[in-house]
Design a protein around this nucleic acid. Structure first.
Lengths: 183, 183
DNA sequence: AATAGTTGTTTATTATAACGCACATATGTA
DNA sequence: TACATATGTGCGTTATAATAAACAACTATT
């Protein structure tokens, strides 16, 4: 979806027309000048959030009614296109495939660990859970006192309220899928 | 909910911090200057929709994630506070209690008709339905060729694809609740 | 036809969003 | 300690959002 301005314009005009408002009355109700309203409807202006706010509250519609986001039902993500977060001199790379969205309560990464590399993550907040699946390689983990070994294809879930370490003791690169859940 | 600017600020900062982005990298990804990003986070700026758009797409979050509308689960509407749409010299008054919202597919009015008054509505688009309930008085209606009388407390549903007339032949004011449905 | 009222657009002015650059303050590295 | 790198904030300039008022186009009423 390109060009929100145009989009907002048609939405606003629809709402206004459906109610039989003129630009004048709409300006009265919303407190936004009718010139501005006209320009917005024509997509000629780039309104600020406060003007949008005035319009939304004045017309008693939600913000989204003006924006009219159509969430694409299918989203394809190319790993190549993601710029990873680099740690441990490039031997530990994090690819945020589905980054955090406040409305959801989780995010998803792909993690690559080079042979010999080990990485320790600080403990996260109370209630945070990690769901780890090993795609390639064999993973050694330290979680608190426990030592755990996870074979390729296997998974692990743990409360991330204590420091934990990912380690590649093998000779092959490790690829993980990690789901972080925030309660 | 007051002051969206502040709201957007904390939302943006949350998202950015959760991902470990600096203002610099966030500026890189979104194409919005880091000075602007900083001001937005502090609630010192009043961003335009295009900057919000850049931020949302760059960070791969939805608009609403930044706005974080919390739709109030309960909304009380005071009839007195609604300025009616006047027709027939003030003898036919329409109070939009729940005005049209594109996401919903209906809107709700209260209609008041003075004794002796009659009002004809043009036909609406194909598929539009009206749900009329008589709150007080006795209503006479003409829908196409049909003549219908509706007693107090009773209701009527009809396809509004032909012109229709509301008429008050009694001596008491008529109050209607009308639900318009748009397919 | 002439007048008055309502519609949406255009113009000039002002307020301010957005930028780039410089500054300040950490945080680590030799 | 000194140096280096990266963090967020402040400042001056430019671009433009927002307003008010004048304008043009259309409708209705006498």
């Amino acid at each position: 979806m390109e060009n929100i301005q145009k989009n907002i314009g048609v939405n606003l005009k629809n709402i206004r027309k459906t109610r039989g408002y003129s630009l004048d009355t709409a300006a009265d109700i919303t407190g936004v000048s009718k010139a501005m309203l006209g320009q917005i409807e024509r997509g000629e202006s780039n309104p600020t959030v406060t003007t949008l706010w005035k319009i939304a509250t004045g017309l008693q519609v939600s913000f989204s009614s003006l924006i009219s986001e159509k969430p694409s039902d299918v989203l394809q993500v190319d790993l190549q296109a993601i710029s990873p977060i680099i740690e441990s001199n490039g031997n530990y790379r994090v690819y945020p495939t589905f980054p955090f969205d406040p409305r959801k309560k989780f995010e998803i990464f792909i993690v690559e660990i080079e042979p010999g590399c080990q990485h320790t993550a600080d403990k996260h907040n109370e209630g945070v859970e990690e769901y780890v699946t090993v795609m390639t390689g064999k993973l050694d983990m330290h979680i608190g006192e426990q030592k755990i070994q996870i074979e390729q294809g296997n998974s692990l879930r743990f409360l991330a309220n204590k420091a934990h370490t990912y380690k590649n003791s093998g000779s092959e690169i490790i690829r993980l899928q990690v789901v972080m859940y925030y309660p």
